[in-house]
Amino acid sequence: MKPANRRRIYLMRHGNVTYFDESGRPILPEAVPLNEQGRAQAEAAGRVFAADGVRFDRVIVSGLPRTVETAQGVLAQTGQDIALETWPELVEIRGGKLASIAEDKLREAFTGAFEGIVPEDKRFLNGESIGELMDRVHPALARLRAEDNWDTVLLVLHGGVNRAILSHALTGQRLYLGNLAQTAGCINALDVGDHAADWVVRFVNHAPPTVLQDDTRSTTMEILYEQYRKFRRK
Score class of each variant (00 low, 15 high):
I165Q: 04
H138L: 13
S167D: 13
D191T: 11
T210Y: 14
D57P: 06
R233E: 15
S218M: 15
R66S: 07
Q213A: 14
Q173G: 14
T18A: 14
V211M: 04
G159Y: 03
F114M: 10
A83M: 12
A140W: 02
R143H: 09
E85H: 04
G46W: 02
E108M: 06
G193V: 05
D151Y: 02
F203A: 07
N126M: 10
E115T: 12
V204D: 13
Q213L: 10
D57N: 11
D151A: 12
N188V: 02
A184H: 09
A50Y: 00
K122D: 00
A140G: 14
D215Q: 11
T219I: 06
L224Q: 14
Q213K: 11
L64A: 07
A142F: 02
R66N: 08
R58E: 03
L84M: 07
A71C: 13
D121Y: 04
I60Q: 04
Q72L: 13
V156T: 15
P3Y: 01
H138R: 09
R66G: 10
V153M: 07
L180A: 02
L155Q: 08
W87A: 11
P33L: 01
W150A: 10
L90V: 07
V54C: 06
G46A: 09
L125S: 05
I165P: 13
Y176A: 06
A146P: 02
T219M: 06
A207S: 15
G160A: 09
L166E: 11
D148T: 14
G116S: 01
Y10I: 05
D148E: 15
G63F: 10
V17R: 10
G46Y: 04
T18P: 10
W199T: 06
N5H: 12
D191P: 05
V201C: 11
G53K: 01
D57L: 00
G131Q: 03
L177K: 03
R8D: 15
R58K: 15
D148I: 00
R7V: 07
R163F: 08
V74D: 12
G53L: 12
F20H: 13
L212N: 14
Y10A: 13
L212R: 15
A196K: 06
R233F: 03
L133G: 00
Q227V: 00
Q227K: 15
T86K: 09
R136H: 14
N35S: 05
G96E: 06
L90E: 08
V68S: 06
M1Y: 04
I93Y: 00
R163Q: 09
T210P: 00
G159D: 09
P119V: 10
H206R: 13
V211L: 04
E30F: 03
E128F: 00
H206N: 09
G159Q: 06
K105W: 03
D215E: 15
L90M: 13
S100I: 00
P119C: 01
F114V: 04
G24L: 07
I187C: 06
G185I: 07
R94I: 08
I101G: 02
T220Q: 05
A83F: 01
E36S: 14
V48L: 03
